[in-house]
Write a protein that binds this DNA or RNA. Structure first.
Ligand SMILES: [Zn+2]
Ligand SMILES: [Zn+2]
Ligand SMILES: [Zn+2]
Ligand SMILES: [Zn+2]
Lengths: 156, 156
DNA sequence: TGTTGATATGTTATACTATAACGATTAGCA
DNA sequence: TGCTAATCGTTATAGTATAACATATCAACA
């Protein structure tokens, strides 16, 4: 599972940025320098980063250091599916399946903060059934499992 | 589903407070005035309230108006299962099944802010399987479905 | 009874997260 | 070119949460 396993991380980054690039060109979206840089920053880690963590890195990269700079880029990335917001952490993570329509769920390690993305089936599982019989229309499901990742087993 | 349907709400409150009372007596916990009042406030609404909403009401009830007053009471209620935190809303809701061991999930209406609590099976569903094969140990699952409740269907 | 340790409260200050607002600039297109 | 929408720069402020420390309460128990 990407996020917990060793892998060729440089590939991980370059293919995702390239995918975002292509998608934006096709869809008429602007992957501006700040947006691209934030995506790269997120891709650099398989964990969630807070907006202010990102802002700090942006500042070192010569971008303005005001919160809206980070939030605007993050809003763009989340809106177009290049990144996801982790509600539990008030933080953001790069999407592991960019360009593919999906309904993400997450495994969050409380020890090392690693994040892995999986597919969600909340809307079709038990909760979906409850919603259906109740007449509730699910538009989006936040599914975030908190626990201990394989690398941290045995460490408290 | 409690939260979306009409029901005898006075009962809803009194039985839950009584249950909390009994549980605390048995478990040697102190349901102090502030804690009890916060529980009553939460029970008064089938929706999530922010800590500062609660603080405001506490202040009108003669309690001190500093954030820790609300947060401490909420921490107690959440810790002992009388209330739940809704990550998506940075807010809190009274538990609909106090005293029963459970793993809650929520249906959140984005129109009227009503909240309904259901059982979660995230740890035993698809995500649970992924976690198991990965070696990730799920300790807790945040499951919050955002959508439109039966009472708000047809209103946007 | 008096000590002690655990729990709860009062209070001040501060940290962290997020958005409003508005003017300047730029990109894309008729 | 001129128009329009999108983006960016910047300041200010709103909203959420916790650190820290002093005080108070209460039960266990020597
Ligand atoms: Zn990688
Ligand atoms: Zn994704
Ligand atoms: Zn509950
Ligand atoms: Zn509703």
């Amino acid at each position: 599972m990407i996020g917990f396993e060793h892998h060729n991380h440089a590939d991980c980054i370059s293919t995702s940025v390239e995918a975002a690039d292509n998608y934006c060109r096709t869809a008429g979206l602007q992957l501006t320098p700040a947006r691209r840089r934030v995506l790269e920053i997120l891709l650099g880690e398989h964990r969630a980063l807070g907006a202010y963590d990102i802002l700090e890195i942006l500042a070192k990269n010569g971008f303005a250091a005001q919160p809206p700079v980070a939030y605007r880029a993050l809003d763009f990335l989340v809106k177009h599916g290049f990144a996801h917001r982790i509600e539990r952490l008030n933080a953001f993570v790069a999407c592991a399946h960019p360009g593919i329509e999906h309904d993400p769920s997450f495994l969050l390690c409380r020890i090392c903060d690693a994040v892995a993305e999986a597919q969600s089936d909340a809307a079709s599982g038990r909760l979906g059934k409850v919603a259906e019989t109740t007449g509730f229309k699910i538009e989006r499901a936040v599914v975030e499992a908190v626990g201990v990742c394989p690398n941290c087993r045995g460490e408290t």
